[in-house]
Write a protein that binds this DNA or RNA. Structure first.
Length: 885
DNA sequence: CTAGGGTTAG
């Protein structure tokens, strides 16, 4: 008896202290030799111990040797053994067997069973087990409760987890940790933080589990101050000696976009594991410091074992850096190290090779994938798009749609393909995508909606853009920007303005693109007041130092009649590029300040900016509007010989304009003859305008014929020719041209003018009698005409382009030209002496130019007129353009 | 019974 007791306690001690499998097997052999292997006590110990050394098979064989009448202790051991080794189905199988036996489970049975349900994400089994627990009344047990909280939390059923937690009669730190971790890992960061703060109010002191579980919440909620506080707590309490905690701190600072703090944590870590390296590599990647990402990897290759996650991060960095060599090296390394590549890594490889421009390899990886998921398809399609092969991207998409798999095109697929249809201006394809997207409800995705708006706009269907926009429930900054830009592109400024004011009333925050689309809109509309407001607004949002914003402001102010403001913006810019200078030169040109434009060009050259072809257009344009013929020609020569820039059609048109404006008609015609490229309608149109002002009707007719022969797309040129024939009284030609225009269903942009008075824009169309104060306007114009007649004014009937029988009727039409209505309206609605500013969408006609000069003299006012081409400042009977319009 | 790291667009 004595021997028996002492050998029992000896074996029990030997079992507990065995520290490796071999030792355990020797003790096991001893147990068998002593005939103790059927004993419940030793068998239970052996089952536990074998599971500890990851030998569940041995655990099971021990279990089987125990007599059929097993007690609950043995059952719990085997269920726990399988559970600990991740063999959850086995755990549940033996739990089932236990319930079939006569033995009833105790509270120690359930934590493992619950964990098995959690591990299998088996919510039904979990519910069943929960019911059984409630029947037996074990739910009040701390360990059972903790396991339940954990199970529900893992399954994402945070409401139920919280309920169990709230109903627990006793809670410990594990209960809190399980709930915090559950909230965190499912993205419920606020809740996670709330529970953590509740915990902090209690007497319980957080441990490393708590800290590492709540850290992601701090990182994602960007609560920097509190995050730093938690860091302090981690240092004080000593939990930062745990590597997981440090990894969490590292990740948090990276989420905060504080690489310096992150780096300090990383450098001060005594122990790092591969997660530490992966976290910092991936964090640098997300902060777009890709070089740093790669550097950490290369410099620490001997410090840690890169795993498949390391590889995927580094590969992504390679993609961003377009470093094909390193990508191939890492890929090769991964293959040789024998890592199993899952779909995620393969997808990354497809993306990276695509980004590096190696579509052959990308395609090989793609082909080699046995199970292609949506991301695989998206990645290869995106590769082709990035490499400019839009048609192949389309082809692959069609192939994808034909595949009978569970993988379907998602919002990203559609987003990419909508942009393909946009870039190809393929309306039919775009419409097909739209209907697909509507069928699967993806159209409610904000980005997809935005892409569709853009697609329709760029395919010329602005009406459909607006339809989508109006039907959208949520809109972001991009939505608004896209719609405004659609209106501007289409020339529908009225809607553009309306949408802009709606946007300003909404809570959406403008971004740089907002300003880069609204400023040019103001420029086109010469909406000075709105332009200034937008300028103030962008100052508030801190965009004033942006180069492109400065460039847009210069253009806006110059087109709104504020040359000084343009210059002020120009002066304040810390950085200037060729666009900046071009804007300024063009601005001077518009105001007839040719010398200043030339000076600016010299300054630009001095500042080391290399001129491009556009700046020369501005130069010649400026010279043209200031009568600087020689200087303009010199600029053209300098461009060709000194800067080796081949002139484009626009340059030739500018030179023709330059010569024509100065009435050098024969020179202009010679120049056109000598052009190395075939002159288009714009060239001839320039010449034609000059012919008409100089009265060279012979050339005018010849040139008009040319224009009609060219059959230009822009109806403006045909109308110009038609007007020339009208002046020649060749009405048959006029009606022929008009008819062909009508046949083509082309409608000319009708002429209109507008004026801003008391923060309101008033628009006038030619001959419009429905405009406000129409009666008064006509009356005052009549008075003005009689006053003008005294100055010797005779209306120029050549400017009338339609064959009207009565000279009187022609005069009526002239008097109806829209800018005159706008000017008269301005005179009627402002204090005497106030300067007026009138805008016109077309060029001012010669007769209106004369009339405005006279009006400025008669009423003693400055009248600033901006037409489609430039500014005219009328003052005391003269114009700033010195009649070179 | 409780903790951390990876994919596609713009």
């Amino acid at each position: 008896m004595q021997t028996r007791v002492s050998s029992s306690s000896f074996i029990s001690r030997a079992l507990s202290s065995s520290s490796n499998l071999n030792e355990l097997r020797r003790v096991h052999a001893l147990v068998i030799s002593l005939g103790l292997d059927t004993s419940d006590f030793f068998s239970g110990k052996l089952i536990d111990k074998y599971s500890q050394f990851r030998e569940p098979a041995s655990s099971l064989s021990v279990f089987r040797r125990v007599s059929p009448a097993k007690n609950v202790y043995i059952w719990n051991s085997i269920i726990r053994a399988f559970c600990k080794n991740g063999l959850f189905p086995k755990s549940l199988e033996f739990y089932g067997k236990l319930r079939e036996s006569k033995v009833s489970p105790d509270k120690y049975t359930f934590p493992s069973v619950i964990k098995a349900c959690a591990g299998l994400f088996d919510a039904n089994m979990g519910d069943l087990v929960y019911e059984q627990i409630l029947e037996m009344g074990f739910e009040s047990d701390l360990y059972v409760g903790n396991a339940l909280v954990d199970m529900f939390a893992r399954m994402g059923l945070l409401g139920r987890a919280r309920q169990v937690f709230d109903e627990m009669p006793v809670r410990d730190l594990v209960s809190w940790n399980s709930l915090i971790s559950g909230y965190s890992s499912h993205g419920y960061y606020e809740e996670s933080l709330d529970v953590y703060n509740e915990l902090r109010k209690s007497w319980i002191v957080p441990d490393s589990f708590t800290v590492s579980s709540v850290l992601p919440a701090f990182g994602n909620l960007m609560v920097v101050k509190q995050g730093q506080g938690l860091h302090g707590f981690a240092l004080k309490s000593g939990v930062n000696s745990v590597v997981v905690v440090n990894n969490g701190l590292l990740a948090m600072y990276l989420k905060f976009s504080r690489p310096t703090d992150a780096r300090r944590v990383f450098d001060e870590m005594v122990v790092r594991d591969s997660v530490s390296y992966n976290t910092i590599i991936c964090g640098y990647l997300n902060l777009e410091v890709h070089e740093e990402s790669v550097r950490i990897f290369l410099e620490n290759l001997d410090q840690f074992n890169p795993d498949i996650l390391t590889a995927s991060s580094v590969l992504r960095a390679c993609g961003h850096l377009r470093d094909l060599r390193l990508a191939k090296y890492v890929h090769d390394h991964v293959l040789r190290a024998g890592f199993v590549l899952d779909t995620t890594v393969e997808n990354i490889l497809i993306d990276v090779y695509g980004k590096c421009g190696d579509m052959t390899t990308a395609r090989d990886v793609f082909k080699g994938l046995e199970c292609k998921d949506t991301v695989s398809w998206n990645s290869i399609i995106s590769g082709y798009i990035q490499n400019g092969d839009l048609l192949e991207a389309m082809r692959l998409f069609k192939l994808m749609m034909m595949m009978i798999t569970e993988e379907q095109a998602d919002h990203i697929t559609y987003l990419m393909l909508i942009s393909v249809s946009t870039r190809l201006a393929d309306l039919k394809f775009g419409q097909g995508l739209h209907s697909n997207v509507t069928k699967c409800g993806i159209n409610f995705d904000l980005s997809v909606g935005n892409a569709l708006i853009d697609m329709y706009a760029k395919c010329g269907e602005v009406g459909d853009s607006l339809k989508i926009f109006n039907s959208m429930e949520t809109r972001d900054t991009v939505t608004w920007n896209t719609v405004i830009s659609a209106c501007v592109r289409f020339g529908d400024f009225a809607t553009g303005l309306q949408v802009t004011s709606q946007m300003r009333k909404s809570k959406v925050v403008p971004d740089m693109a907002t300003f880069l689309v609204t400023l040019p809109m103001c420029a086109s509309l010469a909406a000075k007041r709105l332009g200034k407001e937008i300028h103030c607004c962008l100052l508030r949002f801190g965009y004033e130092s942006e180069l492109r914003i400065g460039n847009a402001l210069i253009e806006m102010y110059s087109k709104c009649g504020c040359l000084e403001s343009s210059f002020r913006v120009f002066e304040r810019m810390s950085r200037r590029d060729v666009v900046t200078w071009t804007g300024m030169i063009y601005a001077y040109g518009m105001y007839g300040e040719g010398e200043k434009a030339l000076e600016a060009f010299v300054d630009m050259e001095k500042s080391g900016i290399v001129p491009d072809s556009v700046v020369f257009i501005a130069i010649i344009y400026a010279c043209s509007h200031s009568g600087l013929v020689e200087e303009g020609l010199a600029g053209f020569e300098k461009m060709k010989t000194h800067y080796k820039i081949d002139p484009m059609m626009e340059h030739y048109a500018c030179v023709v304009d330059l010569l024509s404006r100065s009435q050098k008609i024969s020179k202009a015609e010679e120049f056109i003859q000598a052009m190395p490229i075939k002159p288009d309608a714009s060239i001839w149109a320039s010449l034609l305008r000059a012919c008409r002002t100089s009265g060279d009707m012979e050339t005018a007719e010849r040139v008009s014929r040319r224009i009609i022969e060219l059959n230009p797309d822009d109806p403006g040129y045909s109308i110009l020719a038609s007007n020339a024939y009208a002046a020649l009284r060749k009405w048959d030609k006029v009606s022929l041209i008009r008819k062909s225009l009508n046949d083509k269903l082309i409608k000319k942009n009708p002429g209109y003018s507008w004026i801003e008075i008391c923060k309101k824009v008033h628009v006038f169309r030619a001959g419009d009698t429905s405009a406000p104060q129409s009666e008064a306007i006509h009356k005052s114009l009549e008075i003005l005409y009689s006053l003008m007649a005294r100055e010797g004014y005779v209306p120029d009937s050549r400017e009338v382009s339609q064959n009207l029988q009565e000279e009187e009727e022609k005069r009526r039409l002239i008097c109806g030209h829209s800018e005159r209505l706008a000017i008269a309206f301005g005179l009627l609605n402002t204090e005497p002496g106030t300067p007026l500013q009138v805008m016109k969408n077309l060029r001012v006609c010669g007769d209106c130019h004369e009339v405005t000069k006279l009006i400025s003299k008669i009423v003693g006012r400055e009248i600033l007129v901006r037409d489609a081409n430039r500014f005219h400042l009328f003052k005391d009977g003269t114009c700033s353009c010195k009649d070179r319009w």
